[in-house]
Write a protein that binds this DNA or RNA. Structure first.
Length: 356
DNA sequence: GATTCGTGGGT
DNA sequence: TACCCAAGAAT
């Protein structure tokens, strides 16, 4: 099944990659200098932030977090709401909720230290197969098969692996495990990720500079850009909804905390209707947080793309009184302090439409 | 195994 | 413009 008589099987040398890495390693805020002992807290925090998130986007967030919460104990002792506010804009907010739970779990362990094995790490909230292996290897020098999106691309090209993702994951893991050295496993993992990020890129890989050019089966066949194979993805539907911008004459606006689970869980929102594909805009104000208001539809719309659907929100505005009580689950926030709230980007776009 | 879960930048 | 993609995890 896996035998490909037309593709020569070549020996892949971990050393060739490590030599390249020692010369070209990226300097990243969370990466310890050569010879220095990595801080498990910084390794963990960066790995959580980097899940499905670019290095560029993570940078400022990582710096802000370690400046404000220098240790896992400090993070564990922090107000959860402050952490959500600091995370706002980075996306995938369940990560922030798991971050809090994980910090508190670690702080409650003997010595307040992270587990130093892949298995122990895997049991922590928000730590899956990739992150557990990455922390074990990078922070604790454990030999572990680290497989992220970069490494999937590198490995499927190296072996010209025809199996489409995600079905290919178990085989990729075996192939990575087979070449992971006992010495410098953390550097090896980071080297493969650097390779995927800088040379073995999705488009126009720089094969001429690659330390693994010779053993790469896809390069030999000239098909490197076609890997990894992937299952076609579903079309993204369009959902619509309404948001309700209620302001008081003294400069307060009504906001609401979203349920802890689900989309934008635990974050602050401009009170909104559900978002559906068959939203009835004529009955939009049925979803308003307060009845009996003179809701007027504002010009323009807020558009935002989520992973699995496209969103278009129509904004309705009304004037409240200084004495208007906030409905259940809602609260008043000073307009000038709205930016400091745990507002996801989608909500900031809605606020921008409302404020003209 | 398939879905759900954000956001910004690159092409 | 309309995709694609990024140091994935939880359910």
């Amino acid at each position: 099944m896996l035998h490909k008589p037309d593709v020569p099987v070549m020996r892949v040398a971990a050393d060739d990659l490590l030599v390249w890495y020692d010369r070209h390693r990226r300097r990243l805020p969370w990466r310890a200098a050569p010879g220095e002992t990595p801080d498990p807290y910084r390794v963990w925090l960066s790995e959580i932030m980097l899940q499905q998130t670019t290095v560029r986007a993570v940078g400022p967030y990582f710096e802000a977090f370690v400046a404000r919460w220098p240790t896992v104990a400090a993070l564990a002792a922090a107000d959860g709401e402050d952490i959500l506010k600091a995370w706002a804009g980075l996306g995938y907010y369940s990560r922030a909720r798991n971050l809090i739970a994980c910090a508190r779990a670690v702080a409650g362990r003997p010595g307040g230290r992270f587990p130093d094995t892949e298995e122990g790490l895997r049991a922590l909230p928000g730590v899956g197969a990739y992150t557990a292996a990455a922390i074990a290897a990078i922070a604790f020098g454990r030999r572990a098969a680290v497989v992220d999106g970069n490494i999937e691309r590198v490995i499927t090209r190296l072996h010209a692996l025809e199996t489409p993702l995600p079905a290919a994951k178990p085989e990729i893991r075996r192939l990575v495990d087979a070449i992971t050295p006992a010495d410098r496993p953390g550097d090896f993992a980071q080297a493969m990720m650097d390779l995927g990020a800088s040379l073995c890129t999705p488009k126009r890989p720089a094969c001429g500079l690659c330390p693994w050019m010779k053993p790469c089966a896809a390069r030999l066949a000239g098909t490197q850009e076609t890997f990894p194979r992937k299952m076609p993805k579903a079309v993204r539907p369009l959902r619509r909804g309404a948001a309700f911008w209620l302001v008081r004459p003294d400069g307060y606006v009504l906001v609401r905390k979203r349920p802890d689970k689900g989309l934008l869980g635990g974050m602050t929102e401009i009170p909104s209707s559900p978002w559906t594909e068959d939203f009835d805009m004529a009955r939009a104000t049925d979803h308003a947080p307060l009845r009996g208001m003179r809701w007027r539809r504002l010009p323009g719309e807020a558009r935002h793309g989520f992973t699995h659907f496209e969103l278009v929100v129509t904004v309705f505005a009304a004037d409240a009184l200084t004495t208007t009580k906030a409905p259940e689950g809602c609260r008043w926030v000073r307009l000038a302090e709205l930016d400091g709230e745990a507002l996801p980007t989608a909500m900031r776009k809605i606020a921008a439409v409302a404020r003209g």
